[in-house]
Nucleic acid binder design. Structure first.
Length: 839
RNA sequence: GCGGACGUGGCGAAAUCGGUAGACGCAGCAGACUUAAAAUCUGCCUCUCCUUGAGAAUGCGGGUUCAAGUCCCGCCGUCCGCACCA
């Protein structure tokens, strides 16, 4: 009998066995009687090497996949690569390697790393989005949506770096400058492709209600993102025309407050503002100043509210005597509503700040009590109340007043009740090489023409260079210059590529079904979809998950699938974090450059003092990353997996520590010793109970994805087995423990399973059955309280009568001592739990 | 700014319905084994005090209740999200 489990040899041996036997290959066969389970983790971007976040993510999914198999399911648990994206182009620019070579090399590295962790994956379905046999089908789907009228083209602004001659993502713009060139970023208008996600706004919002397998937090984030607002759109007549307009349209969610209006404001991008800027340098300067600042919601809301008085005035639609000044204001967004608002300072915090600054009237029109109608407003009051100072609206509550104003506007023809969405159509054009080519040809005569289906895939040209700024596809005439498919005249391919979020909007369908002649087979995909449990980072809570939900609905509309929601269960896991270290000069030090010296830290090199900083997400910039591979070399896959599951709840951050992985390693070895223990005779009823309580607890905790609690349950059971004297019960418990730990520590479990003389693989074994009779305790510990404070405990038979509980409580020495001669005022009895004596 | 989450020992945490706070683990301390170390095993391990016992304690301040980590009100703090990185 070997006394140690040796992952250095065992891991690879079992991984080879699983692969040889195709153990984790999903069947999906129509006649297969097993229930199907689709377990999916968000597929990785092949950035170079696996990091600890991947290890945690895939370990969680793996435990669930293995557990479901043992519970008798046909499990689909696939893996692939989200392989298009900017880092590959950055590598091409910086290192001169082709993005494809870089990406495929990374995939090879990361695939080997994942395999060393022993994940129960069906590698036969592996896919990479950068290969034509994936993105060609994506092009076909894009054209399907195009044919269905769900794709259109319009002008849209981008961040333009004039030095690198490239479009920048928002995150590449730092303080208004390009991250690489440092040049001032310009806003430039380009013709771009859009997907009509707004067509599905209502449905995407309503669908959230049924997604009870999703975290509330994610549902709320999506709800806010979609941002449904109901209100009134109406026009203010201008007293003098501007930009050829004699009225300005505004949108409000508070039409009830219309008599409280004291100004009208338009966005700096509004036609009126632009027209004025052309004639008035002061207005132009104001607009330029607004544009120099950030445009995210957070930046706009926290920035000082600023306005430019145009000198124009607007007529109030319900009060001919009222003239409202028209401002250009920095907090009005052109692409939300109509790009113009009216301001009611008394009942909107933003308007209040603005009015205070520009000395505009603050007119109360809503009051908590009608009696307070004349009170001054000292801060914006946005709560409920009744209308005051509002003519025919006086006395109505807010909802009734809203309805009344909308009704009058529609009757009078000056406005209309409207629903406005924050959700905007999805711009999918990217002016980059390393993405799915948009399958369209631009012809001077015919306009944009779809590439004929029989000419798909439109394959990216291999021979491109990154030695000049800009998109290499713009400089690849051999690829881009083609004949128009419709009129045969010289034409040019679309050189923009698709947003990489398109790639990840349907990969789960391709995993489920991968015919060569179409993106997926509907019937086969519907046998697996929706994904029962999807696991990934919360950073995808909005965009990826919303786009995938949209894509499914779009496919449903064109009849390619009969399912609207791609993921019924969603789990967002926390990050892996690590302490940070800084040298005296403030530079970051990596964990392998420092050592602990009592309570202090010093450098390994020269013993210089080190400041240990806060625990933060592992990141290259702070140098606090731990590469999983050397850890796997040293401790084996199971110890790493065990650590990933222990201690921290999976939705919370997990602080990596050297001591923690050591502890996991020691426990793996302890499990090995336990499973190798000697047989014995005789029953141990107490241990039998603990075993079955353990089986139930581990299973329930895995089902609930509470892996930290599943691990704790295994520890408890291991402790109980360790302490028990030899018996047949003990031997049986140790044997059962092998199956209980197998989803988490599969290599150890296979080794122990084989050593115990079992045939076949533990991966194929059934999850142990719980004997429900053994879960019922026949003894309970009763808490005895005096005035709500615990004073004693007493053991009694389960189901003991209430008056017997009372008698036991009053018989306790400790209770009697406190009670003295006094008679209890009241005795509270909670069956099988406690007795509380109130004095 | 708006929206949301969270706050429990030295640390990660547990406590399913309002019912014995701190399961389980890490670190630490003491001991056994050992020539020694590692590994392993045993015990201790929230704080305070007048330590055979008692008191306090789940961010702070109130409240409801026989009973509050859990429910309610008000603060404080930390973290996350708010449109083309994946």
């Amino acid at each position: 009998m070997t006394s140690r489990f040796n992952p250095a040899t065992a891991d690879a041996r079992w991984q080879r066995t699983w692969e040889d036997r195709q153990t984790f290959r999903a069947s999906g066969a129509v006649g297969d009687p097993r229930p199907r389970a689709y377990v999916l983790e968000m597929f990785p971007y092949p950035s170079g090497r696996i990091h600890m976040g991947h290890v945690r993510n895939y370990t969680m999914g793996d435990v669930l996949a293995r557990y479901r198999r043992m519970r008798g399911a046909d499990v689909l648990h696939p893996m692939g690569w989200d392989a298009f994206g900017m880092p590959a182009e950055n590598a091409a620019i910086e290192k001169g390697v082709h993005p494809g070579d870089w990406t495929r090399a990374n995939i090879a590295t990361m695939r080997a790393q994942l395999k060393r962790l022993g994940f129960a994956l069906d590698w036969s379905r592996e896919l990479a989005t950068c290969e034509p046999d994936y993105y060609g089908h994506e092009q076909a789907l894009f054209l399907d949506l195009f044919d269905a009228g769900l794709v259109y083209r319009r002008e849209s602004e981008v961040n333009w770096d004039p030095v690198d001659a490239t479009v920048l993502a928002n995150e590449q713009v730092i303080d208004g400058r390009g991250w690489r060139s440092g040049a001032l970023v310009e806003r430039r208008k380009l013709n771009q492709w859009f997907l009509k996600i707004t067509d599905f706004a209502e449905d995407l919002l309503e669908g959230l209600g049924a997604l009870d397998g999703w975290p509330d937090k994610v549902r709320l984030m999506q709800e806010n993102w979609i941002g449904k607002s109901q209100g009134l759109k109406f026009r203010f007549r201008l007293t003098a025309p501007a930009a050829g307009l004699d009225e300005v349209e505004v949108f409000t969610t508070r039409p009830d407050t219309i008599f409280g209006a004291s100004f009208v404001a338009v966005s700096p991008d509004h036609p009126i503002a632009l027209d004025l800027a052309a004639r008035d340098p002061a207005a132009a300067a104001f607009i330029a100043d607004c544009k120099a600042r950030g445009t995210t919601a957070a930046e706009l809301e926290t920035a000082e509210k600023k306005g430019f008085d145009t000198g124009l005035t607007a007529l109030h639609p319900l009060d001919p005597d009222s003239r409202l000044p028209l401002f250009i204001a920095n907090f009005v967004l052109m692409d939300y509503g109509s790009g113009a608002v009216f301001g009611v300072p008394a009942h909107d915090a933003r308007d209040f700040e603005f009015a205070t600054k520009y000395s505009l009237p603050i007119n109360r029109v809503v009051a908590a009590e009608p009696a307070a109608a004349a009170d001054l407003v000292h801060e914006a009051e946005t709560g409920a109340g009744v209308l005051v100072n509002s003519r025919f609206l006086d006395g109505l509550d807010v909802p009734a007043a809203k309805a009344e104003v909308i009704a009058r506007a529609e009757a009078g023809g000056w406005g209309q009740g409207t629903t406005v969405w924050r959700l905007r159509d999805w711009g999918v054009s990217r002016q980059r090489y390393w993405g799915t080519p948009i399958p369209v040809i631009h012809c001077a005569a015919c306009g944009p023409v779809p590439v004929p289906r029989d000419q798909l895939p439109v394959v990216l040209p291999q021979d491109v260079s990154f030695d000049q700024p800009g998109n290499p596809l713009d400089r690849a005439p051999a690829w881009s210059d083609v004949a128009c498919p419709r009129c045969a005249a010289p034409a040019r391919r679309e050189t923009d590529t698709l947003d990489t979020f398109v790639n990840s909007s349907w990969y789960f369908l391709r995993f489920a079904s991968q015919p060569s002649d179409q993106p997926f087979d509907r019937a086969e995909a519907e046998r697996w979809l929706p994904v029962g449990q999807y696991i990934g980072g919360v950073e995808h809570a909005i965009l990826h998950l919303l786009y995938a939900r949209f894509w499914m609905r779009a496919l449903q509309r064109i009849g390619r699938i009969g399912i609207a929601e791609p993921f019924t269960g969603l789990f967002t896991q926390g990050m892996v974090t690590h302490e940070t270290y800084r040298a005296g000069d403030g530079s970051w030090l990596s964990p392998d450059e420092v050592q602990r010296d009592g309570d202090d830290w010093t450098t390994l090199a020269d013993g210089a003092p080190v400041t240990a900083g806060r625990v933060e997400k592992m990141s290259k910039s702070k140098r606090n990353t731990i590469d999983p591979e050397p850890i796997v070399d040293q401790y084996g896959a199971d110890a790493v997996r065990w650590f990933m599951l222990s201690d921290s709840p999976p939705e919370r951050d997990l602080p990596w520590s050297a001591a923690g992985i050591e502890g996991a390693w020691r426990f793996i070895q302890r499990l090995w010793r336990l499973t190798q223990s000697e047989p014995g005779d005789g029953a141990d009823p107490a241990l039998d109970r603990k075993l079955h309580a353990g089986i139930a607890a581990v299973g329930a905790n895995i089902e609930a994805l509470a892996f930290n609690k599943a691990v704790a349950s295994i520890h408890e059971l291991a402790n109980a087995i360790d302490k028990a004297p030899p018996s047949a019960s003990r031997a049986a418990a140790a044997a059962t423990l092998i199956r209980l730990v197998s989803p988490m520590a599969p290599h150890l479990a296979e080794e122990a399973w084989a050593a115990a003389g079992n045939s076949g693989l533990v991966a194929d074994a059934a999850w142990p059955m719980v004997d429900a009779a053994l879960l019922v305790e026949d003894q309970v510990t009763l808490a005895l309280q005096v005035n709500g404070k615990l004073r004693d405990t007493v053991t009694a038979a389960k189901g003991v009568a209430r008056d017997e509980m009372e008698r036991l409580a009053l018989a306790s020495d400790k209770v009697r001592k406190l009670l003295g001669d006094a008679a209890p005022r009241k005795i509270v009895v909670v069956p099988d739990r406690l007795v509380n004596i109130v004095l």
